[in-house]
Nucleic acid binder design. Sequence first.
DNA 1: TCGTATT
Length: 382
Amino acid sequence: MVTILSTVEAQAPSAAGPSGCGPVPVPVPVVAVPGPGVAAALPNGAPPGPPPVADDSKTNLIVNYLPQSMSQEELRSLFGSLGDIESCKLVRDKVTGQSLGYGFVNYVEAGDADRAIGALNGLKLQTKTIKVSYARPSSASIRDANLYVSGLPKAMGQKEMEQLFSQYGRIITSRILVDQVTGVSRGVGFIRFDKRVEAEEAVRGLHGQKPLGAAEPITVKFANTPGQKSGGALLSLCPGARRYGALHPPPQRFRLDNLLNVAYGVKSPLSLLPRFSPLAIEAVPALAGVGLGTPGPGWCIFVYNLAPEADESVLWQLFGPFGAVTNVKVIRDFATNKCKGFGFVTMTNYEEAAMAIASLNGYRLGDRVLQVSFKTTKQHKA
DNA sequence: TCGTATT
């Protein structure tokens, strides 16, 4: 484990991840670094060129679309399974302390950052699909670059909207809101530009304009910032409610086939899943975190019949969709570093853990059938 | 008709 160090501020310029939402292929961004124009020696004899700013453009990741309940420690646990972490920060609301749903992970090694993108981008955690990409260098010029667009033709898709806006700058993300039932566009979307000046230009150029063939003009304005409310009464401040847990949203109805096929590309019909009931013996709320499971809060789950190549990200992918996962561990042979066939997962909430066990026990992962259960306590091991 | 991407 690595001690948390202060985040390095300065970064060399780099490209950001691709535009678009959700799990998308992440090309390794390479952008030429605009160097200083002059290379003259300094009076003090110091070497010419830029000051020795730390270049974390290849180690520092931004993680978006994190579940609301995910803590910084869980973020560290998730990404720490891929390599040593230099720093890790979950961004929170200054007033309430609530997660803003994104964070930064800076690895020691660039190769680990690259692997983390490959392993964790698109990971499903509860209701979210996280996005992992290289962080752009922090700068005031990239803030407040998010636009709200309404009045879009219902037939306009994300791609078309991007085409419309891309003439004004580089698009970081875009989204069109759709009716949850019908899936039809609500005519409302968001465009985040790389630079605020690009967004400003887009407002000037597109607000009140009619897209090609459209009947109505579109509205283009800056989107609300996270602090602003959009509708109902403002939630009362809850200074003490920084820790999730008690007020966890109920588990969703999971589509295992979707959730797991995305992660593994395997076919596994729900009909193959065992359906034993998650027994009630240990289901005494007051006893959560004791008895079964580990020291520390949560429910420890034993996972057996993992492949030798299994790593922590596999366990995150398997259990993350079911609810709050605080820790995962693959047990490896010391000499070979291969998985010894089993591992452990800690989940915060009993109901979610029980659902994960009920769903994943007997699940076929590749050519293996997993055995999943609550970890049994081996007492008195001195 | 406003989900949450720059520490």
